[in-house]
């Protein structure tokens, strides 16, 4: 029992950056823009969040910086794909290359000026460590899982819930879905398609950036190494969007499942079954592929990618 709850706790910790990345990408894809730059934006957020934490020791500044720099990355993407109608796949991939490169170049300069791998201060680390509410956090088993997590987890879940209501229950959300499914019809009905695309792509990018900051501040213990911060989590997030069928609420469950897969190998007793590590790591991708195939076979329109995703909308050419 103890082991199971430890496993669940570890899974939640591992799943949170994925949740941010997934929610960000859902927002972008809902307005018809598949942004393959998630990995790059997470890197940008990882650097900016770390740098702000390192310099200011403020949680708020760190949060804003990670959101802001990644949002700027998303702005470049939005300008190229929405205004200049550039190819979405190529632009997204370029954003990934650019974002990883920029973060590591800045990171190296930061290491050089710090004279070694910079670390965030204990003061800052205390701010982002697991919260403790007397009484509640001490409830056996579930106390730690519900009331003893780091603040990012609660922010992530809150964003997911807000986005769920935003996309599913508000008029603007309905408009967004219209843009994603049929931008020409949305345009004809008086929705400002390009503006909505910009807003959602940029906010989505910023949310991905917070996920990146989580990786550099929590998962790597607040120390900037020269490489290996985001490690492909951005790509898993792109996959998770499919897994959670473009639904922010399902994204919470989806990222938890993926988080479980990534922590599973530490908790499966080798006395019961020995599975090569690589298979555990492959599981999320395999599972996503299966989900992708099943949804395409069922042709379920509710769970499918927004129809216009990947195709730029150009009013003059409709």
């Amino acid at each position: 029992m103890e082991t199971f709850f430890n496993f669940l706790y570890a899974s939640i910790i591992a799943s949170t950056p994925l949740l941010f990345g997934t929610i960000g990408e859902i927002l972008s894809e809902k307005v018809g823009n598949m942004n393959l730059g998630v990995e790059g934006m997470m890197w940008l957020g990882a650097f900016a969040g770390f740098y702000a934490a390192y310099k200011t020791e403020s949680f708020l500044f760190s949060l804003l910086a990670s959101f802001g720099l990644a949002a700027i990355g998303a702005l470049i993407y939005a300008f190229l794909t929405v205004t200049l109608k550039a190819n979405q796949n190529v632009t997204g991939l370029t954003l990934t290359t650019f974002g990883i490169g920029l973060s590591l170049v800045f990171g190296k300069a930061m290491i050089a000026s710090a004279g070694g791998a910079p670390k965030t201060s204990d003061l800052f680390n205390a701010k982002i460590s697991a919260i403790h509410i007397p009484g509640l956090s001490d409830i056996p088993y579930i106390g730690k899982i519900l009331f003893g997590l780091n603040p990012y987890v609660y922010i992530g879940v809150a964003i997911a819930v807000v986005m769920y209501f935003y996309l599913r229950k508000t008029k603007i959300g309905l408009n967004l879905r219209a843009i994603g499914e049929n931008p020409a019809a949305a345009d004809a009905s008086g929705i400002n398609v390009n503006l909505m695309k910009y807003i959602n792509i940029i906010i989505g990018g910023g949310i991905c950036g917070i996920g990146g900051a989580y990786m550099s501040l929590i998962l790597v213990n607040g120390s900037w190494q020269d490489s290996g911060v985001v490690n492909g989590y951005g790509w898993i997030a792109v996959a998770l969007v499919i897994f959670s069928s473009w639904n922010p609420a399902k994204a919470i469950a989806g990222s938890l499942v993926f988080g479980m897969f990534s922590s599973l190998r530490y908790y499966v007793p080798s006395s019961i079954i020995v599975i090569p590590t690589a298979f555990y790591q492959m599981l999320p991708f395999l599972l996503t592929t299966i989900v992708l195939i099943v949804t395409s076979i069922r042709k379920s329109r509710e769970n499918a990618q927004p129809a216009s995703c990947g195709i730029n909308y150009y009013r003059e050419e409709r």
Binding site: V90, T94, F98, I100, L102, L104
Partner: peptide, 14 residues
Amino acid sequence: SSYAADVLQGIILF
């Protein structure tokens, strides 16, 4: 950083 290559490649592509 040699990752400047990625940044330059990104700028060229953008």
